[in-house]
Simulated assay, not measured.
Amino acid sequence: MTATTDVSAPGAGAATTDSPPVVRFAQVNKTYRSVRAVADLDLTLYPGETVALLGPNGAGKSSTLDLLLGLRHPDSGRVEVFGTSPRQAIVRGRVGAMLQSGSLMRDVTVRELVGLACELHPKGHPVDEVLERAGIAEIASRTVNKLSGGQEQRVRFAFATAGASDLIVLDEPTTGMDVSSRQTFWGGMREQARQGRTILFATHYLEEADAVADRVIVLHRGRVLADGSSAEIKAMAGARRISFQLDGPLDETALRALPALTGIEISGRTVRMRSTDADATVHAVYGLGLYPQGLEVTGLGLEQAFLAITDAAGGTAPADEEPTR
């Protein structure tokens, strides 16, 4: 699966491959000690895409973002951003970034800190506009050391959007935010996408990826394991969910032997299954002489599909795969 056709997320601009790529990884490798964090990675992002980067802990997400932002250099292969090196693209103001690590200056006000970012950006926006967009205008006079974790995240978002960058890179952007702040944040990102910017974000909130991204990339052990729309990723898992209740005695052995089953959970009288052929599985349930009540057959959500795909690929990567920035 690839994102080579025009797609758009809710509120996003249309992606296109007609223009030169925004980001290109070509056979990129990065090793820390004896562990390969990024392995022969080929990846291309196009203008106007909103892309979610998913993967279990240690999959290579942070290392990939570090390479894209020029914070680290590949051992081999090539990383290009707008046809140049990451450093050149950043110096020209074409990239805005919001990282989950790194300290903010503590003894200055929010306005002073964001104002500095606007002044330093080659194509900086007015500070009041940036503060309003990030939802921190009401705390502009507060010193940074008085902020909550969610408020600090919104200040980092202000940094990422302090100027007219063409690519915005976000690493776990809504960590620490409450539900209302997360909704406000993604509203702002949709507006950025509508203006034609490319958005790349890594997240552990899979419901955000499902709702916001028009393209989902799953990394595993430093390689692309899956790449496509949210619907395509769900279909790739090749399974559906079946749930029902049973009266009378339960024969767990017979239930676990049903055809096409990839998982089963029995809790009291409630049975929940995953099946690659729901029709065959349900038919076999009736074939056992059982009469399921409240039968439901649904597709996997993105979270269940993600777990199925990564489990099939061998689970999580070594915990020390990605070093601290």
Rank of each mutant, 00 (worst) to 15 (best):
G48V: 15
P122L: 08
G238P: 07
A237G: 10
G187Q: 15
S103Y: 06
A254Q: 04
T2V: 14
E208W: 02
T310W: 06
A237M: 07
L113C: 02
D75S: 12
L300S: 01
G176V: 13
E207W: 09
R33E: 12
V108N: 08
E152P: 06
L246W: 02
A305F: 04
G315F: 00
E49N: 05
A52Q: 14
E321K: 11
G315H: 00
V297L: 00
A12F: 03
F306H: 06
V216G: 03
A237W: 07
G228E: 08
S267M: 00
F159S: 10
D227N: 00
A26R: 15
S8L: 13
V216R: 03
Q245W: 10
R223P: 02
E132I: 11
Y46S: 08
P292W: 07
D311S: 12
A137N: 14
G238I: 00
T84H: 01
F201C: 04
D311K: 14
D166A: 08
L250P: 11
G263T: 07
G176C: 09
G289D: 09
V216S: 05
G115F: 00
R154V: 01
I217L: 00
I264M: 01
A319T: 07
I199E: 09
G314T: 10
D214S: 10
M236E: 15
Q88I: 11
V224A: 04
S229K: 15
Q245A: 10
P56V: 12
T175C: 09
I139C: 10
V179T: 14
N29W: 05
P20I: 06
E129L: 12
P126F: 03
R106A: 05
L246Q: 04
E321C: 12
D66H: 08
R182L: 07
P292E: 11
L307A: 05
G188P: 04
T50H: 01
Q192S: 12
E303G: 05
R142N: 08
G176W: 02
V179Q: 14
D214R: 01
Q153T: 02
A160T: 05
R272M: 02
T2C: 10
G294F: 06
G287R: 10
E321Y: 10
R223K: 11
G149S: 05
V218S: 07
A319Y: 08
G187N: 07
A305Y: 03
S101T: 15
Q27N: 15
E132Y: 14
R106Y: 09
A117P: 11
T64R: 03
T84W: 00
R194Q: 15
L200F: 09
R272Q: 11
R215Q: 04
P74V: 11
L219T: 13
V22T: 10
M189E: 13
Q27P: 15
V155G: 06
A97N: 12
A12Q: 05
F201E: 07
I90C: 10
R194G: 12
A134D: 02
S63L: 02
G149Q: 09
Y286P: 15
G48Y: 13
D178I: 09
T310E: 05
L295M: 08
A319L: 14
